[in-house]
């Protein structure tokens, strides 16, 4: 390639970049801007009537792990906060695992239907998105509450005598989040399974692999990008979930999202709320980095 040609290509690439300027400006203001404001607020002083006093303070950050004890007149470790963090991470991990356990067979089922039928199945998967999250969560509530569909059915069938207390427990939050985030797992899994060459299954069986070993040694490694994408899509919003734990957790099974809300409304501690938001962001980023690293660990490494 001559230098002139190269320059021409570079120039046209630059012009292409300029076309994306409106989007970049939008991103700078709509994404980076608010984030910077949140970081800025986390270092200010709380105002008891809400909002903040523009005076530097690290109390918001200290408040994440410690709480001020007026009797001891000092900072003590805030067990309640840690419980909330741990619950959020744990519930999100379990949600991710559950959506995978349910989503993988579902995605496999759809991807192995005749090409004409797949669009219909995918359409069915996306139908829940048409309804507001709040409505869907209340619908789940209707199913699992003590006088709800599930308990009524079980009592009628004679399986149980006393209604199962599912509502307002962590189980309820798990059921709700699994239901809400399942499509986010199914869709990326479907996208990779659909591209999976089914002839490899025959090759694997032919080479003495059982069905289980075919799943472990051939299918899962090949659809791994879909598993990673699905897990991220489920884990990240789960960690920040607000509506589901609020309604199904009944206020006592609080997750980080609810805790943040508490600081901005009743708590009137905006710097703490802002610091918690940034903490959530850091947890998500760290979790993603670890996940991607673990997921890619065996890439290129030998098996035998």
């Amino acid at each position: 390639m001559s230098p002139a040609e190269e320059n021409a290509i570079k120039t046209s690439a630059r012009n292409g970049w300029l076309l994306s300027l409106p989007a970049l400006v939008m991103l700078a203001f709509a994404a980076t801007g608010p984030l910077l404001i949140v970081v800025w607020y986390s270092f200010l002083t709380a105002n008891d009537t809400g909002n903040v006093i523009h005076q530097f303070s690290t109390e918001g950050w200290v408040g994440i792990l410690f709480t001020y004890d007026i009797f001891e007149d000092g900072w003590v470790l805030a067990d309640a906060h840690l419980t909330i963090f741990w619950r959020s991470v744990w519930l999100s991990l379990v949600t991710t695992a559950l959506t995978f356990a349910i989503g993988f067979p579902t995605a496999w089922f759809i991807a192995t239907r005749p090409a004409k039928e797949r669009a219909l199945w995918l359409f069915l998967i996306t139908i829940p998105f048409w309804t507001n999250l709040l409505i869907r969560t209340f619908a789940i509530n209707e199913v699992i509450r003590n006088e709800g569909l599930l308990n009524t059915l079980l009592i009628w069938a004679g399986v149980i005598e006393v209604p199962l207390q599912i509502n307002y427990t962590e189980t309820a939050v798990l059921i709700g989040m699994t239901y809400v985030y399942l499509p986010l797992m199914v869709l990326p899994l479907y996208a990779t399974i659909e591209r999976f060459d089914m002839r490899l299954l025959e090759a694997s069986y032919d080479l003495y692999a059982s069905r289980w070993r075919t799943l472990r040694r051939v299918i899962l490694p090949i659809v791994k990008p879909g598993i990673i994408a699905g897990s991220i899509l489920v884990f990240v919003p789960s960690l920040g979930a607000y509506v589901t734990p609020r309604i199904l957790g009944g206020g006592k099974n609080m997750m980080i999202g609810n805790f943040i809300e508490l600081q901005f409304l009743q708590g009137k501690n905006w710097p703490l709320g802002a610091a918690l938001s940034v903490t959530l962001l850091i947890i998500v980023t760290a979790a993603l980095l670890v996940y991607v690293k673990v997921a890619n660990r065996d890439r290129g490494a030998g098996h035998g």
Partner: peptide, 20 residues
């Protein structure tokens, strides 16, 4: 179509049956 395992190297492909 050969149906070689795309996630494995040449040697790993050949070793697959023996390992199974």
């Amino acid at each position: 179509s050969y149906a070689l395992f795309p996630h494995l190297t040449v040697a790993q492909n050949i070793a697959f049956g023996l390992e199974m």
